[in-house]
């Protein structure tokens, strides 16, 4: 049988909207500016930072990061835009181009990031035949090498053979024979390369005897000898060799000095030019003068 007293649910007390004393204090504590900043900024930063540090503490993970970075680097550097396929050399003759290609052993194609342009430039500039060099990677994947080649102005004969020399006295390249570059003057002697300009000036002022000059020789690293054909030699002084040489030329023009049987013209003492005759000429001179008739002739 049902009970007569109705079982009503006990009326729920009205919810008290007021916060409890401790809840209220806690909320006020949480609103403290320093704590707020700590919770909103400090803790997330700490958590994320700690997680990252823990992950990074493992060797395998570090290796993975390093690999990924180098992989991405490679990927980027080997893109088509950065590839260099051709080397172009400007301002050099064929032999020098060959030399440059030999000293720059670049295997194409390669990435422009792998090229150390400054080092390559120094390598190229270190070649004897190169005065200056500029390298750049041109759009289109071309390694552009622009060289300024040394211009030979003379042939230098040293102990180990003939070499071309430029205006600064730098040896450029050996040549097998003098006849290969007969257009260039020949210079020799110790210290000749240091005073090359003076030696070349001797050629310039030679004028009428230019075609007879065989070489200029630096003697004792202080003065010049001019060697002519027929074994003739003009010894020039240490001071003002050009003037002395011009005097010889003037003499030649006036008196056909060099056409005579003279072996050495010694201009070293400007006050007393001296001529050395050949042996036969000396004898002839003596005979003409009647000083000492030779027995054989009479």
């Amino acid at each position: 049988m049902q009970p007569l007293t109705a079982r009503r649910p006990a009326p729920t007390p009205r919810r008290d909207p007021a916060p409890s004393r401790w809840g209220y204090r806690f909320q006020r504590w949480m609103l403290t500016p320093a704590l707020r900043r700590l919770i909103l900024v400090g803790l997330p930063v700490l958590a994320v930072g700690g997680a990252l540090a823990a992950w990074y503490a493992k060797d395998a993970n570090r290796q993975m990061v390093a690999d990924a970075i180098s992989e991405a680097r490679m990927e980027f550097q080997s893109r088509e835009e950065f590839m260099v396929r051709v080397m172009a050399v400007d301002g050099a003759d064929d032999a020098l181009v060959q030399d440059i290609r030999t000293v720059l052993p670049v295997e194409f194609p390669t990435s422009s990031f792998d090229l150390d342009l400054e080092e390559m430039r120094q390598t190229v500039a270190a070649l004897p035949a190169v005065a200056d060099a500029a390298l750049r990677v041109r759009p289109g994947g071309v390694l552009q090498v622009t060289v300024e080649q040394r211009q030979p102005v003379a042939v230098f004969r040293g102990a180990d053979g003939l070499r071309l020399v430029d205006a600064e006295g730098v040896l450029i390249a050996p040549i097998p024979a003098r006849a290969d570059r007969s257009d260039l003057p020949l210079i020799t002697g110790d210290g000749a390369r240091g005073t090359l300009a003076e030696g070349l000036t001797l050629y310039d002022v030679a004028g009428p005897i230019r075609h007879r000059m065989r070489a200029v020789v630096r003697m004792g690293e202080r003065r010049w000898d001019v060697v002519l054909d027929r074994g003739q030699r003009i010894l020039l002084p240490t001071e003002t060799p050009i003037r002395a040489f011009e005097r010889v030329i003037a003499l030649e023009q006036a008196q056909d000095l060099l056409g005579r049987d003279v072996s050495v013209i010694d201009m070293r003492n400007a006050a007393r030019p001296t001529i050395r005759l050949n042996e036969q000429a000396v004898a002839e001179l003596r005979r003409v003068n009647g000083e000492e008739p030779e027995a054989g002739d009479e």
């Binding site: 008290d16 909207p17 007021a18 916060p19 209220y24 909320q27 609103l31 500016p33």
Partner: peptide
């Protein structure tokens, strides 16, 4: 006191400042 706490807490919550 509870009523004051209610009002103050709600206002603090809206202002986000203590």
């Amino acid at each position: 006191e509870r009523a004051i706490r209610t009002a103050v807490q709600a206002a603090q919550k809206m202002a986000n400042v203590r």
